[in-house]
Design a protein around this nucleic acid. Structure first.
Length: 104
DNA sequence: GCGTTGACAAGCG
DNA sequence: CCGCTTGCCAACG
């Protein structure tokens, strides 16, 4: 039986598990998480899952940013959440990856 | 079933 | 870092 699924929940939980491992005051990139779970090409899928992270549970999806350190568009609260954990923002939509990038 | 979109990545200038 | 192009894959209409 071909694993037609192999995605949906399975992929979602894989992403959420990795996100849950991100320590406070740290940020991870979509591509980084994608590689950790074994899907280096599916970075965009990671983003899609995080956009619905609330649906799966209480996950620190605010600690996930893109490769340029930019926060999620259309989500202003993320900046506030990061600052609350000790992450200094370069501007309203950027964090210092150089200083806060999570090294797995 | 196909074309477009997207909380992306990497390379080039 | 910004802008442009290519690649990669799933979801949406």
């Amino acid at each position: 039986m071909s694993e037609t699924a192999a995605l949906n929940d399975d992929f979602a939980y894989a992403v959420l598990s990795a996100v849950a491992e991100i320590p406070e005051g740290r940020v991870a990139t979509y591509g980084q998480l994608a590689r950790l779970i074994g899907y280096p090409k599916n970075a965009r899928l990671v983003a899609r899952v995080l956009s619905h992270a609330e649906y799966y549970g209480d996950y620190p999806c605010h600690r996930v940013v893109n490769a340029t350190g930019r926060l999620a568009p259309g989500w202003a609260a993320q900046a506030t959440l990061l600052q609350a954990e000790g992450v200094a923002l370069i501007d309203a939509t950027h964090v210092s990856l150089k200083l806060y990038r999570w090294k797995a």
